[in-house]
Design a protein around this nucleic acid. Structure first.
Lengths: 211, 211
DNA sequence: CGCTAATCTAGAACAAGTTTCAGCCTCGTC
DNA sequence: GACGAGGCTGAAACTTGTTCTAGATTAGCG
């Protein structure tokens, strides 16, 4: 019942330097193990040992394996967002640009399919106790897509389209990771769903369809 | 290395009557436990005891908890498909009919949210070893949607749209189950993605756009 | 520097999914 | 009706996520 200050979340306690370093080591170990063997290879004891931290400490930083992997995803997504921003997509329409961006992200994931597996499986398996963290990931993804669309003040309709695109993105990734869809198929699905953007664009009077 | 004939899958061994009964008892116990407490409440020992079967036998019928829950979903989906067929959707366009059908299915799931949780979580968490079973579920879902569209010979484009709808359906369910989206939001997402159907309809020369 | 509370460590312990095994039972066959 | 193969049972064992505890360390503070 004491007002404990766990090193969780965002602004609970500022985290000392050593704590920040520990957290970073843990995330690094997690990503490394995940890259090697996917979700199953990320074993809490191994993560602890591999990052030079006691099991109890690992659990203090990340209250479950799912929390850990979702945090790993936040970490990776952040890097990806920065990378993507460096070379913005070149397509003419918003739909093309979003599709191009997502395909670029997809190719990045293909380079580490096991890591992708671990992160995506954790994300979709997460229950209510991880909602805040999953929500953060979702917001990051939304930001990436809106970036690609070149919007900063989207209409509700456009937000709906973006949500649907995210749904498709996650689910398509899963079907690919579990070997039920080919890379080509994922590409098609992404391109298909991105057409929704044009649909809402015509309804949104922001960018007049001067053609 | 012996050519064992496990009571798995479709056509391995015809399954005797008692075996069929066992299988049914197991699925029933699974659904019941799931309906009570969701994914976590489906504990293999409990399923075994509750269906009057030894743990080893349970594992002979369903090689993992995920297999069991995916099979449970197949079972439930089949029932749902029959129910839905009885009263076909009444909307004018294919998009409306699909949206209506999915919303009807969604309301059915809302009646047993814990069961929905267990099934959907299992479905998205399934790895490659469950691919055939997950694929069956996917085909069942596709059949339901095509039914609602009133198609029996869809174009590749329409199949893409259906796949995207399925993606959205699964992912939207997950966000709802984990409390990150409201029922209203799921409705909007479904309606949004269903607009894709109209998009492909105009491109498909089957139903001439006689206005 | 010395104190106190919080944090960290090592390790045991627990929970639930999964595997294994010895022995009994059932089914199809002769 | 006896036989043999495979299926079923009961129980123990193993794995990995998670929790708990006692003692050592560390951080912040007077």
């Amino acid at each position: 019942m004491t007002a404990e200050a766990k090193p969780r979340g965002s602004a609970s306690t500022p985290l000392t330097e050593r704590q920040e370093a520990r957290r970073r080591r843990i995330l690094h170990a997690s990503a490394q193990l995940a890259a090697r063997g996917g979700f199953d290879a990320v074993q809490m004891r191994e993560v602890a040992e591999s990052s030079g931290v006691a099991l109890g400490t690992l659990y203090r930083y990340f209250p479950s394996k799912i929390h850990l992997l979702v945090a790993t995803m936040q970490d990776q997504l952040q890097g990806m967002h920065l990378t993507l921003r460096k070379r913005p997509p070149a397509g003419a329409g918003a739909a093309e640009r979003v599709a191009e961006t997502l395909m670029r992200a997809f190719r990045a994931l293909q380079r580490e399919p096991h890591l992708a597996d671990a992160m995506v499986r954790a994300l979709t398996f997460a229950d209510r106790s991880v909602s805040p963290e999953v929500d953060t990931v979702s917001r990051q993804t939304t930001a990436i897509i809106l970036d690609a669309m070149g919007l900063d003040r989207p209409t509700p309709e456009q937000l709906s389209a973006v949500r649907v695109i995210e749904h498709t993105w996650h689910s398509a990734l899963i079907t690919w990771l579990s070997g039920r869809a080919s890379i080509a198929q994922v590409k098609i699905d992404i391109e298909t769903v991105c057409r929704l953007i044009d649909l809402t664009a015509s309804a949104a009077p922001r960018q007049p369809p001067e053609r």
